[in-house]
Design a protein around this nucleic acid. Structure first.
Length: 483
DNA sequence: TTTTGAGTTGTTCGA
DNA sequence: GTCGAACAACTCAAA
């Protein structure tokens, strides 16, 4: 027995990693359906989702959901919060409301794909529509393939194929109306979900650094376009200055679409300065590429893409892993990055590579251990980007770094943090150490260390691995793999 | 089917 | 200090 007349049956927009109103094709379609729209977010636990959000991501999610609810309220709607397996929660909601259809944005995570396929079946049996409309990728999986119809495994040809289809279509405006259901629908309270850790309160002060939500995302893009977009190509590698876009968490949660990033960039940057945008677009396409790879190879997060790496002689070393996590490796650039990560939920891209390379090449610790730590500590933790990037650094991924490419943490520090500004900020032990020694404090004469007020071995550790020795050990391990 | 050119992000060594 | 070569061979993608 249908409880509502046909005209007032709602449709459900199931929000997931598309926490925005602008350029959200699924939401726009729901809005245009002529039905009231029930806006729902479903929190799934680690019991059923193997890659449920980590600690830092949950903090972001909390604030992003709060922001989304505020935006919906300006349209006279609200966000309904439910917890559980989406298949069951949506089945219940459809039963409760006689919803005519469920709208959502498809994702590339293997778990999401499984959920969608079950959901499609369940809704079909209930006679309820299931409409998944792309919106989180400019180039959804299967829209870009090689001439043979195969997925690309090399970035550059993928990138070129993407460029051929340009420019992407214009972003959609936010719906003007989003009529609410008249009948009240039960919702969890966001605070009950306890997404924000209070004890310990490691995220205190994060709201000064980040503004989760759609408004924050557009603001971040605007700042980037005003301040650093034109010099992005050269400055993005410098952790001591704000040279990157810092859009990654906003993109991960879908608070802004890549298409919006693209169009706003072209609209706001003067044509003669648009050369600097090329590197930015390239990075956006990297995100697309990673999502393609995850879609086609669903065990990318767990297993090395290159099979021979199953027998790579990784070393399980809990103590060294812990030192790396805490930023106590004895290499200032690595430690600065790891401490920035812990303190802010984010790490500069260049430093991510250096820190990741140190873990897998200098310490020979499995890339999965590093990826797991990043998963828990990054506000932008994204299964596709994280897995593909870690495998790239480890050399076992697609188009991966050659085995002889082993970052020298001293050189990288000197090259990209030439004045030691970044290191001094995150490793204040060296606040008074001269630049000359900032990236290799162990070579500083004893009296210089003393003058700068730091004692190696007590205030700050000696390197836990000698660069040359570790480099040679890593090269030997890779050589062993070839035979 | 075969061929050909190319492939995110680096380091070290010796001239 | 600067510069080019070596570091390996393999796989991918297109012609």
């Amino acid at each position: 027995m249908t409880r509502y007349r046909e005209s007032v049956r709602p449709v459900i927009h199931w929000f997931r990693k598309d926490l925005r109103l602008t350029d959200n094709p699924a939401l726009s379609s729901a809005a245009e359906s002529g039905h009231p729209v029930l806006a729902v977010y479903i929190l799934e636990d680690g019991d059923s989702d193997p890659w449920a959000p980590g600690g830092a991501s949950k903090w972001w999610l909390h604030h992003s959901l709060k922001a989304l609810d505020q935006s919906l309220k300006t349209l006279g709607n609200r966000l309904i919060l439910r917890r559980g397996r989406p298949q069951e929660v949506l089945r219940e909601l459809v039963a409760e409301t006689s919803a005519a259809a469920v709208y959502c944005t498809p994702l590339t995570e293997p778990h999401a794909i499984k959920v969608d396929s079950e959901l499609k079946h369940i809704l079909n049996e209930l006679g309820t529509g299931f409409r998944a409309l792309d919106g989180n990728l400019i180039f959804p999986p299967e829209s870009i393939t090689t001439k043979n119809g195969e997925p690309y495994k090399v970035f550059t040809p993928f990138y070129k194929a993407c460029l051929k289809t340009f420019p992407p279509s214009a972003p959609l405006p936010a719906p003007k109306k989003l009529p609410c259901m008249k009948e009240p629908i039960r919702s969890d309270s966001l605070n009950q979900w306890k997404l924000v850790s209070k004890k310990p309160d490691w995220s205190a002060g994060w709201l000064d650094m980040w503004t989760p939500g759609e408004t924050g995302a557009l603001g971040r893009l605007d700042s980037f376009l005003e301040q650093s977009a034109t010099v992005y190509g050269t400055q993005r590698d410098r952790p001591d200055i704000l040279g990157t876009s810092k859009l990654s968490p906003h993109l991960h949660f879908g608070e802004i679409s890549p298409r919006t990033c693209w169009h706003h960039s072209l609209a706001r940057v003067k044509p003669e300065l648009q050369d600097g945008l090329k590197s930015f677009f390239r990075q956006i396409v990297w995100r697309e590429f990673s999502h393609h790879l995850l879609y086609y190879w669903p065990n990318f997060p767990e297993e090395p893409f290159r099979q021979e790496f199953r027998r790579f002689p990784w070393i399980r070393d809990e103590k060294a892993l812990h030192q790396w996590q805490l930023g106590l490796t004895g290499y200032p650039i690595v430690d600065a990055g790891m401490r920035e990560l812990w303190a802010t939920g984010w790490m500069h891209n260049r430093v991510r590579m250096v820190a990741a390379s140190f873990l897998v090449k200098h310490l020979l610790i499995p890339w999965q251990d590093g990826a797991a730590w990043f998963w828990d500590t990054l506000v932008d933790a994204d299964l596709a980007n994280n897995s593909v990037s870690w495998q790239w650094v480890a050399g076992c991924g697609v188009d991966a770094a050659p085995f002889f490419r082993i970052f020298n943490p001293i050189l990288q520090g000197q090259r990209f943090d030439p004045n030691g500004t970044y290191v001094r900020h995150w490793v204040p032990e060296f606040a008074n150490l001269p630049n000359k020694y900032i990236h290799e404090p162990w070579v500083a004469p004893e009296h210089i260390l003393e003058d700068s007020g730091v004692s190696l071995g007590s205030d700050y550790p000696f390197p836990i691995a000698n660069h040359m020795a570790a480099r040679n050990r890593s090269l030997a391990a890779f050589k062993q793999l070839r035979n």
